[in-house]
Lab assay of single mutants.
Amino acid sequence: SAVVMEEGSPGEVPVLVEPPGLEDVEAALGMDRRTDAYSRSSSVSSQEEKSLHAEELVGRGIPIERVVSSEGGRPSVDLSFQPSQPLSKSSSSPELQTLQDILGDPGDKADVGRLSPEVKARSQSGTLDGESAAWSASGEDSRGQPEGPLPSSSPRSPSGLRPRGYTISDSAPSRRGKRVERDALKSRATASNAEKVPGINPSFVFLQLYHSPFFGDESNKPILLPNESQSFERSVQLLDQIPSYDTHKIAVLYVGEGQSNSELAILSNEHGSYRYTEFLTGLGRLIELKDCQPDKVYLGGLDVCGEDGQFTYCWHDDIMQAVFHIATLMPTKDVDKHRCDKKRHLGNDFVSIVYNDSGEDFKLGTIKGQFNFVHVIVTPLDYECNLVSLQCRKDMEGLVDTSVAKIVSDRNLPFVARQMALHANMASQVHHSRSNPTDIYPSKWIARLRHIKRLRQRICEEAAYSNPSLPLVHPPSHSKAPAQTPAEPTPGYEVGQRKRLISSVEDFTEFV
């Protein structure tokens, strides 16, 4: 048969007729292969192709491409040299491709048809291009793949890379869960390890502090508590009631339409708007009261037996805890006409967050109470924005700035309102402590230090009264110190430094 060459192609190359033996071998191979691939376009007849790359030819070592076609129900084999250009295909004639002069020997084609199974398996396991790669995943090629499931790999992101949580363990979102698992493993320790309690022994800490320079003076030496005195035992138990972190309780009120001037209507609300609910979820963490331990979680007086509701929101960081007394989460009882059960919590909070959804101005004093010092007013606006402002009593104007209003988005509203309420509550605590000038409020841990110092002074006084020969370590507060001759004046800087060093040991009130 003659071949018409394309323009620009090399000279004529004689194409030899395939021997009958080659056709029989390739026909047997075509019957084993699956003929249901995917359909081509209507211009080209339905056909199945599979590209198999052999590394070497037997005796020649030339890479070839073998295409199996099922045109007219008769499979045909096409061998081509890759750099050459194939002729145009037609549905009426068999596929013809040019070969190099080196394939002119018909014996070479017979060798190609009689490829060993080793070469076929190696060509099938190679990388296939384009559409033949999808075909190689079918059941027909499963014989050339190794048996057994593939090893499982770690989760992959859409980009093909490992997620960040699997790369950096410290930033993994499941870090707290692993800590819980470690605690569970520790709890399952053997009885021999049960006595080993991690941490620092208080006796060891005391020993280090006792021999430090801070205890060089007799006034700073630790003293032993009497065991037989019940009054001192009660004082030590009272110390446990003062937490070592700051605590805040903040009221949250929802004002519906037409309720801006009605205290009873505001306290009777059992739910609010959708934006109000989203605002609550951002204030803190939802907790169930019956599962809380009052000595570990500050509840601000809420009952854990269901008297004040089942849930509330709280927030904490390293040095403070805040609980929100939310009116809509507290039960509304029919027998309580004046809502006294709610007001006994909300009316005693220094700061209230008022979500004013009424469309009218909310005035300070609508919720009557002796300790309502500051109101954080949240007014929802259009386009997911809110107006946040402050209202306070006249005696609080020096501590709280009420002249600045803020426009905040719904997303950042819980954070801004919480921070403003916490700052206002700190100012309210300082303002409330002014009624007792001898006990200015600095912080909870300073209050613990003052309680310890008062307890020490009482013990020293009782020891001096029981044994008059012992001198008083600290003179009583009601006694007057003996007159001392004025010492020589020293520079102001040295006096300030000495006073600062003494105050650092005794108390921190002056620095606050």
Rank of each mutant, 00 (worst) to 15 (best):
D217W: 14
E218I: 10
S219K: 13
P222A: 13
P226W: 12
E228T: 06
E228D: 10
S229F: 09
Q230Y: 13
R234W: 08
V236W: 07
Q237A: 12
Q237K: 08
I242H: 04
D246Y: 05
D246L: 05
T247L: 12
K249G: 06
K249S: 14
V252G: 00
L253G: 01
L253N: 02
Y254P: 00
V255T: 01
V255F: 02
G256R: 03
G256M: 03
G258R: 05
G258Q: 04
S260M: 14
N261G: 10
E263Y: 05
L264R: 09
I266M: 03
L267M: 07
S268P: 03
N269T: 03
N269V: 01
N269M: 02
H271W: 15
G272V: 03
S273T: 04
R275I: 00
T277R: 15
T277P: 01
L283M: 03
L283I: 04
L283Q: 00
R285Y: 15
L286K: 11
I287W: 05
E288G: 08
E288Q: 13
L289K: 13
D291E: 11
C292W: 08
V297M: 13
L299I: 08
L299A: 15
G300P: 14
L302N: 15
V304Q: 11
V304M: 13
C305E: 14
G306K: 09
E307W: 06
Q310F: 14
Q310E: 11
Q310W: 09
T312A: 12
T312F: 05
C314S: 07
C314H: 15
C314V: 15
H316K: 15
D317R: 01
I319S: 07
M320Q: 15
Q321G: 05
F324M: 03
H325W: 04
H325F: 04
I326P: 05
L329I: 04
K333W: 13
K333F: 14
D334W: 07
V335W: 12
V335G: 14
D336R: 10
H338S: 15
C340Q: 15
D341H: 15
K342Y: 06
K343C: 05
R344Y: 09
R344G: 09
R344K: 12
L346R: 04
G347I: 15
N348Q: 15
N348M: 12
D349M: 10
F350E: 02
V354E: 00
Y355C: 00
N356I: 00
N356Y: 00
S358M: 01
G359K: 08
G359H: 07
G359N: 04
D361M: 05
I367M: 13
K368H: 09
G369Q: 06
F373K: 13
F373C: 15
V374H: 02
V374R: 00
V374F: 11
H375S: 15
V378W: 00
T379C: 07
Y383N: 05
N386M: 02
C392F: 04
C392T: 08
C392Y: 06
G398L: 12
G398M: 09
L399F: 13
V400G: 04
V404G: 14
V404E: 07
A405C: 14
K406L: 15
I407A: 03
S409F: 01
S409I: 02
D410N: 05
V416D: 01
V416G: 00
V416C: 04
V416A: 03
A417H: 00
R418F: 05
Q419D: 06
M420N: 02
A421M: 00
H423Q: 05
A424Y: 04
S428T: 05
Q429I: 12
V430N: 03
H432I: 09
S433V: 10
R434L: 14
R434Q: 13
R434I: 10
S435E: 14
S435H: 11
S435L: 12
S435G: 09
T438S: 12
S443I: 15
S443Q: 09
W445D: 15
I446G: 11
A447L: 11
R448S: 12
R454Y: 14
R454L: 12
R454A: 15
L455N: 11
L455S: 09
R456G: 14
R458M: 15
C460K: 06
E461V: 09
E461Y: 10
E461S: 06
S466G: 11
S466V: 12
N467D: 14
S469Q: 15
P471V: 12
L472D: 15
L472R: 13
V473R: 13
P476H: 13
P476L: 13
P476K: 14
P476Q: 14
S477N: 12
H478Q: 14
S479N: 14
S479Y: 07
P482T: 13
P482S: 13
A487G: 10
A487M: 14
P489H: 11
T490W: 09
P491F: 11
P491E: 15
E494N: 12
G496Q: 10
G496K: 08
R498T: 13
R498A: 13
I502S: 15
I502G: 14
S504T: 10
V505F: 09
E510R: 07
